[in-house]
Simulated assay, not measured.
Amino acid sequence: MKGDAAVIHVCEALASGILRVVPALADETVVAGIPTVVVYGRRPETPEDMSEWFDPRVRLVPVDGWGDRSAVGGCVGTVRAAVALRRELSRFHGGVLHLHSTYAGLVGRLVPAPGWARFYTPQGYAFLNGSHPRGLRWLTLVAETALAPRAHTIACSRAEGAVAARLARRHGVSVVQNGVDGELAEPGVAPAGEGFVVASVGRAAYQRRPDLFVEMRALLGEDGDTAFHWFGDGPDRELLVGAGVAVSGWLAQRDAAAAIARTDVLVHFSAFEGLPLSLLEAMRAGRAVVASDLPAIREVVDDAGILVRDAPEAADAVRRLRADESLRAELAARAHDRAERLFTKRAMVERTLATYGL
């Protein structure tokens, strides 16, 4: 890169899994002496003080209202994001522009960016989101197809890469799998009366299918020694609470790691995926996992967990793991080994920068 070039990351919602990816990439380039900028919107789960997540030399540019999903608010936020991005692009003479997730991808591929190499990581295509109206999904698919030539797609899983290749046709697609780091955490202090802990982690919304977690919990019935937790928060919080699931709210990273460490079985339902970082973190923590049988999740779990198609199969899997401590320990060990060997943050960062050409 030229001496006056930069790396700019754009994120419509700097939260959840993307909050594990972008700081790792941004810190790597700013430490190497490359000016690095993050333009981002906010969700309720976005930390108030983003400076705690980044090297202090990374320039952070929040965009008010970007992330608002109402019709008017969404349009206003998108315009503000485009203006903010144009302003940041004008400060440098080209470089790398990396767009993270669908809405950032739409803005960043429409804004003129001569001299910039554009990269786009969907982290789960929005047109696969069955909770969106059919018309919106169709429009998103049309937009993805039309805009595919305007950026090199860096898919976060082989499954996402296969979708990207169909959309991009002859244009560039690379696969860089998400990765996590971290040693086994010390378990947090369990509330009195808890014995066997079944939990899920993430945003309580359609993609993570909290309705299936509730159905599974009902099928498992009442057992005074089993506790059901959802570590996270979201619009479907009350659905979970009403079914007797303890919802923690958003936790600091250290507290979330401690909560996962005291979980006996981590259940990861999903409607669609890029490559789930919360599942990788549970595997890295040495937890037995039960997860939806989707292509991206098969890519992660393989034989290191139990894959299920619905809530009854998940309930059966939890019963098996509760009854068989040796099976639980074996799957937990396999999960830790697989995450540690194949899905590291270091590999993710190095492969991404190599794709940039740095």
Results as ranks from 00 to 15, higher is better:
A81L: 11
A81Q: 09
A82H: 03
V83T: 15
R86V: 09
R87D: 13
R87N: 14
E88L: 09
S90H: 12
R91D: 04
H93R: 14
G94Q: 00
G94L: 00
V96T: 05
V96D: 00
T102P: 11
Y103R: 15
A104W: 02
A104C: 02
G105W: 01
L106Y: 09
G108I: 01
G108N: 01
R109Y: 01
L110P: 03
P112E: 01
A113I: 00
P114A: 06
A117I: 02
A117D: 01
F119M: 04
Y120G: 07
T121N: 13
T121H: 09
P122H: 11
Q123E: 13
L128P: 09
S131E: 05
H132S: 15
G135Y: 04
G135N: 06
G135F: 08
L136E: 14
R137A: 07
R137C: 02
R137W: 02
W138Y: 11
W138C: 14
L147A: 05
P149W: 07
R150S: 07
A151T: 04
T153H: 10
I154L: 12
A155T: 08
C156H: 03
A159M: 06
A159Q: 02
V163A: 08
V163L: 15
A164V: 10
R166H: 12
A168P: 05
A168N: 09
R169E: 09
R170T: 11
R170H: 11
H171L: 11
G172Y: 12
V173T: 10
V175L: 06
V176T: 04
Q177C: 15
Q177H: 14
N178L: 01
G179C: 08
L184V: 14
L184Y: 10
L184P: 10
A185K: 11
A185H: 10
A185C: 08
P187H: 06
P191M: 00
P191E: 00
G193V: 06
E194Y: 11
A199V: 00
S200I: 03
V201D: 06
V201S: 06
R203V: 05
A204Q: 03
Y206I: 01
Y206P: 08
P210W: 07
P210V: 07
P210S: 07
D211S: 07
L212K: 08
F213Q: 02
M216R: 07
R217H: 12
A218W: 03
L219I: 03
L220E: 06
G221I: 03
G224A: 13
G224C: 05
